[in-house]
């Protein structure tokens, strides 16, 4: 009991140490540089961080960015899941594998610029994010399928376990922990990509545009505070899904 508690405390300390180190380094560098346009102090950034939450524009931008990220991710998830399912058939895999490889190799910036030519600044970031997340999501989902052993499938067939029961009682519970982890980490990646695409596309009412404006008006503290919000949201998503995944995989 005591060892478990000690391990938990050690884990928390080990997680906090790098965060404190970065903040300390930031604080020291800000004092040395002494220029708020290049690197504002922690205090200035924290004030800007709090200030964000008093602005309606920020809330609107954050909400729409999260919404766009969620839509793009949902589309990506549906496509990736379908392709991963189809890839279980050898012939389908032969067709799907090169398509995924090509999408994976596409340079992100080039996709943003091209999709911007073909569509508009609202849709382009969603298409870009969908395309960039797709290969990683596909590979992760495909890997999560492989946790179901061939011997388990044979056993279920031999004992006449119905398809419905197999999916509900065997396949889903086994896939779920890995799948939830995948969703969490890719949702976080998805949000990061969405903001990057919005910056390039200068999408109205977006976190990306707020960052762009911060750059134009040399509001470095504001930029850093917005980045902090995105990082915190990304971490919350990742930890939340990791927690749910752990609960789903209590048998592991």
């Amino acid at each position: 009991m005591k060892t478990r508690k000690n391990k938990r405390i050690t884990d928390i300390i080990l997680t906090i140490i790098p965060v404190i180190t970065i903040l300390l380094l930031w604080g020291v560098l800000a004092i040395i540089i002494d220029n708020k346009f290049i690197l504002p102090t922690l205090k200035e950034t924290f004030s800007a961080f709090i200030g964000n939450f008093t602005s309606k524009i920020f809330y609107k931008a954050l909400f729409l960015t999260l919404l766009r990220a969620l839509i793009a991710f949902t589309v990506s998830l549906i496509i990736a899941f379908t392709l991963a399912l189809l890839s279980e058939r050898e012939n389908a895999l032969k067709i799907i594998a090169p398509i995924i490889a090509i999408i994976r190799a596409l340079p992100t910036i080039a996709i943003v610029l091209l999709v911007l030519l073909w569509t508009n600044s609202y849709i382009a970031p969603m298409i870009v994010t969908t395309l960039v997340v797709l290969p990683t999501l596909y590979t992760d989902i495909k890997n999560s399928f492989s946790v179901i052993g061939k011997d388990q499938i044979i056993m279920c067939k031999t004992f006449n376990v119905g398809k419905g029961d197999f999916i509900k009682k065997v396949a889903l519970p086994e896939i779920m922990p890995e799948f939830l982890n995948t969703v969490g980490s890719n949702l976080s990646l998805n949000l990061k990509l969405m903001v990057a695409a919005e910056v390039i596309a200068s999408t109205a009412n977006s976190v990306g545009l707020l960052l762009n404006q911060g750059k134009v008006y040399f509001e470095t503290a504001k930029m850093l505070s917005i980045v902090a919000v995105v990082v915190i949201i990304g971490l919350i998503i990742e930890y939340l899904f990791a927690f749910v995944s752990k609960k789903a995989g209590k048998w592991q």
Binding site: G149, D151, Q152, I154, M155, T158, F159, K169, V170, P173, E174, W251, Q252
Partner: peptide, 12 residues
Amino acid sequence: FVFQNAVLIPSL
């Protein structure tokens, strides 16, 4: 069928 390595479903 009793399989050589038991083959129990790990999540059940």
